[in-house]
Write a protein that binds this DNA or RNA. Structure first.
Lengths: 159, 159
DNA sequence: GGATTTGCTGGACAATCTGCTCAGCGGAAC
DNA sequence: GTTCCGCTGAGCAGATTGTCCAGCAAATCC
């Protein structure tokens, strides 16, 4: 449930050079290959590392527009709305939240015009009372975890 | 800038079984190894695939609480705020948006109580006028791109 | 205090995969 | 009709992987 310094270095190294192998990692980190392998296995079985799936850029796929939609759901319609939204490819993620809205979802679209189509499809469902959309202009900090990993590793001490 | 059916199958296969090799992929897809290799190279140089970095779960790292904060920025303070937020490890991503707020950021914290500390650190900066936070309760649809990839591949025809 | 468990090291092995090259071939573009 | 491009199927040397092992040191337990 927590990682030590060596775990942190493994993750950071892996993040920087994903194509690197276990052997090369062990050389860079100055530890035995078996150690790196064991750490990696543990990190994965502990769930710290979900996997190594390809990181796809929606923009390069033809969906350069990103938006966040806050949805208000009619009481009791939550499950239905989730099922509905999970069928929309342009819905990249969905959260239920506290606060003003009941749900927050990330959308992508082919263009600002196309975004209208996506939103229509998203809110074209009975259980959704209201939706307010914020279009993303810039992304100064793309999704990252490395700083968090480093912080978690520092707090733990060396390993 | 767009992918065909074979590209889509490669990405989906890679997403399902990241540890798979080029050779095994070529067997599964029924094409030559060189073809898969060439497609992968193209996908990466085209930017469709950013990389294969490890997907780290903040919760397993000890940060089980996720929240989204909408920030209102004082005119002209945008760049400073970005620089400030990029130094906070718990800020996993940051977007500038249209709509009610000026920025939207994703935060994680060790607990609901710890979230207060994170928020204080985030908003403890001159350029930020107001912040409204939505704590994530559930995540019915975790970040995904596969459905989008499949849609993009379908529209393109076979390859 | 002594025994046990745990994690790391350094090494070994066969099997496999990678990176690279090649010639041939078909379809599409010019 | 000719050229260009992408895919095929093959081969090769080199490197990596998965999997063992025994030794060793530190921490834990009795």
């Amino acid at each position: 449930m927590a990682i030590d310094h060596l775990d942190g270095r493994i993750i950071v190294l892996l993040a920087r050079e994903p194509r690197i192998g276990v052997l090369e990692m062990s050389r860079r980190l100055g530890v035995a290959r078996g150690t790196v392998q064991a750490r990696l296995d543990r990190l994965q079985s502990d769930g710290v590392i979900h996997g190594f799936g390809p990181q796809v850029d929606p923009a390069a796929l033809g969906y350069p527009v990103t938006a966040f939609a806050t949805l208000q759901i009619r009481q009791g319609q939550g499950p239905d709305v989730r099922a509905h939204l999970s069928t929309v490819p342009e819905v990249l993620e969905l959260h239920t939240t506290t606060g003003n809205g009941d749900m927050l979802c990330r959308l992508v679209a082919r263009s600002n015009a196309d975004l209208q189509r996506v939103i229509d499809r998203v809110v074209g469902f009975d259980g959704i009372v209201r939706a307010s959309t914020a279009i993303v202009m810039e992304n100064p900090v793309p999704l990252r975890v490395i700083p968090l990993v480093e912080q978690a590793a520092e707090e733990r001490g060396q390993g």
